[in-house]
Amino acid sequence: MRSSRRQPQGRVNAPKDWGSRGLALFIKDGCRRDGGALRRCPGQQIRLRRAASALAVRTGRPVAEGPLREPSTDNAWFSHVAFPGDADFEDANFTGDAGFGNVTFTGNARFSSAAFTGNAWFSDATFTHDADFDHLTFARDAQFSGARFERAPFLGPLNCGPLLNLSEAIFSVPVTIQVAAEEVRCVRTRWDATVSLRLRYAKVDLSDAVVTQPTAVTTHPTPFPNMPASDFTGEPTVKMTSLRGVDTAHLVLTDTDLSSCVFTGAFHLDQLRLAGRTQFASVPTGIIRHACCP
């Protein structure tokens, strides 16, 4: 009779080369793998402050309860993991790609002052309490598509590289989002309460976003305080690329560039409020011919 060796759902795939491939934690429904055996640790705070290292797991020791000495990891994957308590990744330096797809944070998720050198995936993650992503740096894409923020009042300030993707994300409480990025994508994003998007440099796509409460998109004129220097240069003006399918009755745009924005299918454009300095497309030049009246 062939034995089943199916990997339990929610367990993180362990790289064969522990030392070079970095972080590998085995967590399923509040359990952790220590020395080859799953041990129940309900409500325990998982701390990876200043580092998230596989060395503790590799040697069979529990994940450190205090700061670790080596502040870096290679690729780190946490797909379908449920953190039973607070998850603390403050000051962690992820030197490779990091995946938190379909992760459930049942406690506070702390990523303050962390740095992601590779791509970061938080797609379909659920944050049931605070999600501390302040003073954070994403050198490459930051994917939060389909993520659910149930009680997080802030996202940022953070520096992103090419893309911050919030498409199909759900924000259940009033939230302030502060981001410097090349592009902020909010396709079919749903805000169930008021939202303030304070952005720098970004091209913003709000196609089919669900806006039911007062929503503000503003160019933040000065760098966010206590943030590391970014590679962005020039004017930080936010460029709106699409309001396709959006009900703009609750939308306020401040100091934005609308010269290339698509308005097709937008609702209540007569109630769209523009504040500050708004840039529009230039008037076409050249000779305009009119047909002669008979």
Rank of each mutant, 00 (worst) to 15 (best):
G161E: 08
G161D: 11
P162Q: 04
P162Y: 15
P162E: 05
P162F: 14
L163M: 11
L163C: 02
L164P: 03
L164M: 14
L164E: 10
L164G: 06
L164T: 08
L164N: 12
N165H: 06
N165M: 01
L166H: 06
L166K: 03
L166R: 05
L166I: 06
L166P: 02
S167E: 11
S167G: 08
S167T: 15
S167Y: 00
S167Q: 11
S167K: 12
E168G: 04
E168C: 03
E168I: 01
E168P: 08
E168A: 05
E168T: 10
E168N: 05
A169N: 08
A169V: 08
A169Q: 10
F171D: 11
F171P: 04
F171T: 15
F171L: 13
F171R: 14
S172T: 03
S172E: 14
S172Y: 01
S172L: 06
S172H: 03
V173S: 13
V173F: 01
V173G: 03
P174Q: 12
P174L: 06
V175Q: 08
T176F: 09
T176N: 14
T176W: 14
I177V: 15
I177D: 06
Q178W: 11
Q178V: 10
Q178L: 13
Q178T: 13
V179K: 05
V179P: 02
V179I: 15
A180W: 08
A181T: 09
A181M: 02
A181W: 04
E182S: 04
E182V: 01
E182A: 02
E182K: 00
E182I: 00
E182L: 00
E183T: 12
E183Y: 00
E183G: 00
E183K: 05
E183A: 12
V184F: 01
V184T: 05
V184P: 00
V184M: 06
R185F: 09
C186D: 01
C186I: 14
V187A: 11
V187F: 07
V187Y: 06
R188Y: 08
R188V: 02
R188P: 01
R188I: 02
R188F: 13
T189M: 15
T189K: 03
T189G: 04
R190T: 15
R190A: 12
R190Q: 11
R190P: 04
R190V: 15
R190S: 13
W191C: 09
W191G: 02
D192H: 14
D192V: 08
A193N: 11
T194A: 12
T194I: 06
T194W: 04
T194P: 05
T194V: 12
T194Y: 03
V195W: 07
V195L: 09
V195F: 01
V195K: 06
V195P: 04
V195Y: 02
S196T: 09
L197W: 00
L197Y: 00
L197N: 03
L197P: 07
L197M: 08
L197Q: 01
R198S: 10
R198F: 03
R198W: 01
R198Y: 03
L199W: 00
